[in-house]
Design a protein around this nucleic acid. Sequence first.
DNA 1: ACGACGCACGTTATGTTATAACGTATCCAC
DNA 2: GTGGATACGTTATAACATAACGTGCGTCGT
Lengths: 165, 165
Amino acid sequence: MRRKNERLSLDGHSARPPAIAVTSDRAERALSQRGLQFTPLRRQILDMLIEAGRPLGAYDLLARQRERAGKPFAPTQIYRVLDVLQAAGLIHRLATQGTYVVCDHEHAAGETPVFLVCGACGSVAEAASTAVEQEVEAVAAASGFKPIHPVVEVEGRCAACRAGP
Amino acid sequence: MRRKNERLSLDGHSARPPAIAVTSDRAERALSQRGLQFTPLRRQILDMLIEAGRPLGAYDLLARQRERAGKPFAPTQIYRVLDVLQAAGLIHRLATQGTYVVCDHEHAAGETPVFLVCGACGSVAEAASTAVEQEVEAVAAASGFKPIHPVVEVEGRCAACRAGP
DNA sequence: ACGACGCACGTTATGTTATAACGTATCCAC
DNA sequence: GTGGATACGTTATAACATAACGTGCGTCGT
């Protein structure tokens, strides 16, 4: 069990300009590959997450969508969209926070997403690591467990918050 | 960044006999070290988690405690106890499920707990890995992030569920 | 003695996150 | 034209979590 390489692609989801790595094209492709459509509603929710540039809660999205559309929406509708986007690999759910964030990686197989959550400023950076994947696999193998969906979220302090108060 | 060793201690939290590695003594010590007490209520909640042998939700514990005591309890009370037990390292919260489970390890520093959650039967096994800790540290270091509390939870299939249907 | 403090617990109310269950419309294959 | 899959709408409820304030009790310093 040696690591072969270590790809680290970091992108902040802090107050920075929304680096829209999730393009409409990518979403379109990710969905149609599964026989699903990139409908207006799905586009709107995804856009909100992209524009926010940080994780949002389902009810936050719900409120924004209500404003935006000027008509009522039910939580169910939002959750359905989130489920679809997540299944298509376009967004991730942050389990420790109950929020959702765009995925700006094309995750290769064999890479586990690692979320670095700053407890001070709330920013979230996403990385992808083959080494973490491999070590988790090793731990699981030791008990005959087959990993399907690893979740790695790290609470801590981001570089910016460690520098200044 | 080489791994030094790999300690894997696995224990199932499935339907098996409750291997009570969290003794009253350990709880007593863990709490009094922090100037806290192992009160009857705290003992009862911890016992429930030990006896269950699997993760329970706060409201599940609440219902059990109401039955057990024959009097009303408020969610607040349960959450307070859970907070204390968690701070003392006696239980863990599973973020992906919103449940709580006894910790049967004495976690050494430098070890990250890894939870193996079977999506079929719901059992949860806990392991501790220095290698995972180190790789997470490496990923964080690459962006100047200081890890404080890593969360690693893996959804998958346990050995038993992979064998039989 | 007594006041200040910290811990533990009680109570009421509310906030937040998520799902169940059922109905309607559309498209497309057969 | 019926059956299946996808998408969306609606109502209701479940599950998880915290805020805010009050009570009792022991301990410590003066």
